[in-house]
Design a protein around this nucleic acid. Structure first.
Length: 876
RNA sequence: GGACAGUUAGCUCAGCUGGUAGAGCUUCCGCUUGACGUGCGGAAGGUCAGGGGUUCGAGUCCCUUACUGUCCACCA
């Protein structure tokens, strides 16, 4: 028997247990031809990042699933790893450089990249170690990085394949450009926010027609420097005679045509739109249709370039001010209206995005999207909850080509070499020495790197060895489920799906399990700037990893956001302690050394076993349906309400009885505890393992024990029902006792004697302190009975004292009258229901039977209440 | 403009395939009980946003209104 401290201390346990698992190699994914594989790849966190509460949520869910499947006998593999996170990481290192007063350009590409790798080596293991603190059972021997050799090879393979198929192309398109990060962004990397601004109405003079003007409205007057036309709607009668005429662009003096285009909304503004093909996606399209010139006036860093004439060198905001003021002075400004509009901002730095025309690499999405849509529509891939598949399909159906080039240094450099002689673009798996077209050796490599999501899109198969035909790939791919939050469905999930289908011919996973975001206690998104982030490590330190994990799943429904409350952590810390002490109790009384059920089971044994059996089935079903919160809640209730509050209390008397009753209780206690630990283990791995280690057990660790199975032999339905009616009786008496505020000195312990003569004692410990008091009984076999029943305190089982002596008879009568009324109403209702023919014929059999039973019970209750009332009257 | 959530106890949220509402925290009453005061027993508190429908029966399914939130698209 092991001495255990009174309070569970996670800190003393977690590290030790984790080490034991790692040392025993239990996390290792082993290819076993006799087992079915179960694979999860981790959503790779930023390599230089810190574990935040969102990771805690995501990884808890994954760990629950992988531990569950491992216990079910699957060859479970959870592949961990990190993402190089292009912009995010580069920004961090650049910030560090800035402290030294340097920029990346001072260092040059090569030296800068060395710095980033150093940084990665230094901080890359931080988040991995933090994941371990959560209890994550990843196969650490398979840890990967999106820029390691294998992943790089996969990226190269994919790029070249797509290029050769014509699915990757380079072209000058309007892209979202962040002048702060100095790179192009994909559409998904732009978020929109409402900004208060103005709508400036500017008039452009018509060439050759004195005093004739066209008034355009714009929110971005600075872009007028790049205007190459004004467009009106072809059906707009106001302007029909203007089409084809020429305007003089104020401030610039350029002659620009008036074109007719359906794009113009006659109802908005003046019905005339200035067209700046270089700085607006719609204008770019208009420009294409009318063969307009594309004049770019804003440079990569957001300054007006040489095309801007005298405005050259002004930052875009400054340029706007100066231009508006010039327009006003020269009389071109007609009016200024207040206007709020949605402006695109960079999701990284929050600065306004500048749409500009720029040569970039794109993935042609249409051909890739079609099979990716089909895979979800025909059910090869299922989203949990289902509603996210609509969001996915809707996005896929309207997807634009994916801008994959980034003007960064940190990332996978694009494997394209330009020939200085013939201009041919060489794209190949091996670095080319000479141009494949003209044979010259004057090749320069494309400076850009790929969008960080390009490599993450390959994660489910690149981590398993693809493009090599590895055994791991053959055995563990496709993966079994992908767990992630809804905010990266477009960034990541969608791209993994079409990449998997395209490159491996298979969906990378059959199920996408989506969860919500963790918000602060006021429902706000956690962010650094608000300073409202919760540090999961602090929570683990304070409450234990198990408590934090339970917090992340309990009371949460799939796909919905959750608010983080420290009080909830505390509640699960308390739960851990409760379990700890229940186990302590079991161990304190433990003399057996083998875990097996006794031959003879008592009523309460059958009851708890029946409950456990049902729990096993339900929890298994719930987890299979990804209803982890429900599963966790049921285990919690079982342990606290059924096992601790009832079974252990009932066992106390038996443990002091003769040997048979003692060992019987021990065996059932031990059995139920052990099985419960297994069910709870995926949720609270540390404490369950620690307790299990101290109990009699076969096998080395709990985490590889077999998941409990439902057994027909342990149904015990009748016994369960009987026990529950006894429990109701006890509860009713407790309530009564508390309501009557019976003073402690007079408060009896309570026994309930059933028809079958089984006796259960409540309050026994207290009873012992009552010198000379013997047993105390309530003669009742059903809940409602107990309320009006006389309590009999017996000494040597002989002396009976009526309840009425402990309570106020008048008040009790009042209460009985009230209950009688309610019961009679209930009875009437049930009877009328039973008389309803359609109910009897249509409702399921069990329901009707239950109603009949209820009617019978109510009838008996009413009789009993009447009897009790009569007795009380007599007593008075 | 389109789509999707949410509206349940004072607060935060569960409630799986329809069978007369649950948890945590809070409040109030009682308890040095022999595993646990990070505990035990009890109580209070809800016409499940409003309205309509389907059904023997609706928090649960359908329609509708209102409010809150999220995403997508557009925005000269």
């Amino acid at each position: 028997m092991k001495e255990l401290p009174k309070i569970y201390d996670p800190k003393a346990v977690e590290e030790k247990i984790y080490k034991m698992w790692v040392d025993g190699d239990y996390f290792k994914g082993v290819r076993d031809p006799d087992k079915k594989p179960f694979t999860i790849v981790i959503p790779p966190p930023n390599v230089t990042g810190q574990l935040h509460i969102g990771h805690a949520c995501d990884n808890t869910l994954q760990d629950i699933l992988i531990r569950y499947k491992r216990m079910q006998g699957y060859a479970a593999l959870w592949v961990p790893g990190t993402d190089h996170a292009g912009i995010a990481t580069q920004i961090k290192v650049e910030a560090k450089l800035r402290e030294e007063g340097k920029t990346r350009y001072d260092l040059g590409r090569e030296a800068f990249l060395e710095r980033v790798w150093d940084w990665k080596d230094k901080y890359g293991s931080t988040i991995i170690n933090q994941l371990k603190k959560l209890g994550s059972s990843c196969d650490w021997s398979r840890e990967r990085f999106t820029m390691d050799e294998g992943c790089s090879k996969a990226v190269r393979e994919v790029f070249v394949n797509l290029y050769n198929k014509g699915l990757i192309y380079k072209g000058s398109r309007i892209v979202n450009w962040c002048p702060n990060c100095i790179t192009a962004l994909s559409n998904e990397e732009v978020t929109y926010e409402e900004q208060a601004s103005h709508l400036w109405h500017i008039r452009y003079p018509v060439k050759g027609e004195k005093d004739r003007y066209v008034t355009v409205a714009t929110t971005r007057p600075e872009t007028m420097l790049g205007d190459t036309a004004v467009a009106v709607n072809p059906n707009d009668e106001r302007y029909s005679d203007l089409v084809g005429k020429t305007l003089i662009l104020p401030l610039v003096g350029r002659e620009i045509p008036v074109v007719a285009d359906e794009y113009v909304d006659t109802a908005f503004g003046t019905g005339c739109v200035k067209i700046t093909p270089a700085h607006d996606p719609n204008d770019f399209e208009v420009g294409l249709r009318h063969s307009l010139k594309v004049i770019r006036v804003i440079d990569d860093k957001g300054y007006i370039n040489a095309e801007g004439g005298k405005y050259e060198g002004l930052y875009r905001d400054e340029a706007r001010r100066v231009i508006v003021s010039d327009l006003e002075q020269q009389g071109w400004l007609v009016k200024t209206e207040d206007y709020t509009h949605n402006a695109g901002v960079c999701y990284r730095c929050g600065k306004n995005v500048e749409p500009i025309v720029s040569p970039q690499w794109f993935v042609r999405m249409q051909p890739l999207a079609e099979p990716a849509i089909a895979a979800v529509k025909d059910g090869r891939i299922k989203f949990v909850p289902e509603r996210f598949s609509k969001i996915y399909i809707n996005w896929m159906e309207n997807v634009h080509d994916w801008c994959i080039s980034r003007q960064l240094w940190w990332g996978h450099q694009i494997p394209a070499w330009y020939c200085e002689e013939c201009g041919h673009i060489n794209v190949s798996k091996e670095d080319p020495v000479k141009c494949e077209k003209c044979g010259c050796e004057k090749l320069t490599r494309d400076e850009d790197v790929l969008d960080t999501w390009f490599s993450s899109a390959l994660w489910p198969f690149s981590t398993l060895g693809w493009p090599e035909k590895t055994e791991d790939l053959a055995y563990f791919y496709p993966t079994s489920v992908l767990v992630t939050a809804y905010d990266i469905i477009f960034f990541w999930v969608a791209r993994m799906i079409f990449s998997g289908l395209e490159h491996t011919g298979e969906a990378p996973f059959p199920t996408v399990f989506i969860h919500g975001l963790v918000r602060d206690s006021e429902g706000r998104k956690m962010s650094k700037s608000l300073g409202n982030g919760v540090d999961p490590l602090e929570m683990i330190d304070q409450y234990g990893a198990d408590a934090l994990r339970m917090n992340m799943v309990s009371g949460v429904s799939p796909g919905n956001d959750m608010r983080f409350y420290t009080s909830k952590c505390e509640a699960y810390r308390n739960f851990a302690n409760k379990l700890w002490n229940a186990s302590r109790f079991v161990m304190m009384n433990l003399t057996i050394d083998k875990n097996a059920l006794p031959n003879k089971l008592r009523l309460e044994d059958k009851w708890i076993l029946s409950k456990l059996n049902a729990l096993t089935r339900e929890v298994t079903e719930n987890i299979d349906k990804y209803e982890l919160g429900i599963a966790a809640g049921k285990i919690y209730d079982f342990i606290w309400d059924d096992f601790c509050d009832w079974y252990i209390e009932l066992a106390k008397t038996r443990l002091q009885g003769d040997e048979e009753s003692n060992t019987g209780a021990q065996k059932v206690l031990c059995f139920v505890l052990t099985e419960t630990l297994k069910l709870l283990h995926p949720f609270m791995p540390f404490i369950t393992e620690e307790i299990w280690q101290a109990l009699p057990h076969d096998g080395e660790v709990l985490m590889t024990q077999h998941w409990p199975e439902y057994s027909e032999k342990l149904r015990f339905e009748d016994e369960r029902a009987e026990m529950e009616s006894i429990m109701s009786a006890i509860k009713a008496v407790r309530t009564l006792r508390a309501e009557k505020n019976v003073p402690p000195s007079k408060r009896p312990g309570i026994s309930v004697v059933t028809d079958k003569a089984a006796t259960f004692t409540d309050g026994e410990p207290f009873l012992k302190k009552l010198a000379g008091a013997g047993d105390i009984q309530i003669l009742a076999s059903d809940p409602e009975n107990a309320s009006g029943m006389a309590v009999a305190i017996t000494e040597d089982a002989k002396l009976y004292i009526p309840l009425a002596e402990l309570v106020d008879a008048d008040k009790e009568l009042e209460r009985i009258a009230k209950e009688l009324k309610k019961s009679e109403e209930d009875y009437k209702r049930v009877c009328s229901k039973l008389q309803n023919e359609s109910f009897v014929s249509k409702a399921p059999e069990q329901v009707v039977a239950a109603e009949r039973e209820k009617a019978a019970r109510l009838e008996a209750l009413i009789d009993n209440l009447k009897e009790s009332a009569k007795n009380l009257e007599a007593l008075k």
